[in-house]
């Protein structure tokens, strides 16, 4: 600034050379700002190829079961022996809450076990990585219709895979399979805690050395009391023990609620979480 140039903000014009200098400073600032925008935006980890059909509603037909977790069982074909092949679509409620209560109501009003009914449900699809989750967006009103089945429903095959110890991360399937990106790890952790303690069934994601993922439904004797406890373990790598079974396109791990307390005191390895680090199933 020349000696006689003095800036007074409330005067209409800044002195000439000062104004030129200011334009230079602003140009430098805008250039820096552009660089930061491009660096930060371009430096994000790739986002999962999962989808949430927000605002779009779909109708699905099938049998609903609450065991081991709320799901819609749909028949996708028959195997070589002529037995039904089924797929389980996880059912979740609107927001961060589970769908069990909706169907407890139906059970009460219909006076029949759920698996003796065929349901027509309306909601929004959430899908990716081979799994499908269905949001009952309109809550109770998402149950459009149910009619008694004339013949018993296709039997559910449960294959016992024995006692297993599994290393991975607990996620909430609603966010993980499409509603949020990223739907796992540290930044998503408190949301996973909210969702699971709100009744959305916890799922464990594991990964082998080749990067192949497995999704395991976690169940306990009393899902109401265990969901709050297990929610606290979401979003960080850990090992959990239990009885593993295969149920149509899902694995199910039945854990002992008392064991969770021990896991809480485990020391976890610092570092990136799923899916960037080799997370393995220990068997």
């Amino acid at each position: 600034m020349r000696k006689n140039e003095f800036y007074i903000g409330y005067l209409p014009k800044a002195p000439g050379t000062l104004a030129r200098w200011l334009r230079g400073i602003i140009a430098v600032l805008l250039a820096l700002l552009s660089l930061v925008a491009v660096f930060v935006a371009g430096n994000q980890q790739p986002f999962a190829e999962t989808y949430f059909e927000y605002g779009k509603s779909t109708q699905l037909k099938g049998v609903v079961s609450l065991t081991p977790v709320p799901r819609l069982i749909v028949k996708t074909g028959v195997d070589l022996k002529g037995q039904a092949v089924t797929k389980s679509i996880l059912l979740v409620n609107f927001g961060k809450s589970g769908a069990a209560e909706i169907f407890h109501n139906v059970e009460k009003t219909s006076g029949r076990p759920l698996t003796a009914l065929e349901f027509t449900l309306q909601g929004s699809l959430i899908y990716g990585e081979g799994k499908v989750v269905f949001e009952l967006t309109d809550q109770h009103a998402s149950v459009l219709d149910y009619v008694p089945l004339n013949q018993p429903y296709y039997p559910v095959k449960m294959n016992d895979l024995g006692e297993q110890s599994i290393y991975g991360e607990i996620i909430d399937p609603k966010c993980y399979f499409g509603v949020m990106k990223p739907g796992f790890g540290k930044v998503h952790r408190s949301c996973a805690i909210r969702c699971i303690s709100g009744g959305i069934s916890p799922v464990m994601v594991t990964k082998n050395e080749n990067g192949d993922k497995q999704f395991i439904l976690l169940t306990a004797d009393n899902s109401a009391t265990s969901s709050h406890k297990i929610s606290k373990l979401a979003g960080k790598p850990l090992t959990i023990n239990g009885q593993l079974t295969q149920m149509d396109d899902w694995l199910v791990l039945h854990y002992n609620e008392q064991e969770l307390a021990k896991i809480q005191h485990q020391k976890f390895v610092a570092g990136p979480l799923l899916p960037h680090q080799g997370i393995t199933i220990c068997n």
Binding site: L33, S34, A41, G42, Q44, P46, F47, A48, M180, K181
Partner: peptide, 22 residues
């Protein structure tokens, strides 16, 4: 405006699949 515009364009191009909220 410039920052948000550059951020959105770069993310759309280099990080496809990003959700609006993120």
């Amino acid at each position: 405006f410039l920052y948000l515009l550059l951020f959105i364009l770069t993310a759309r191009f280099l990080s496809p699949g990003i959700t609006g909220e993120t």
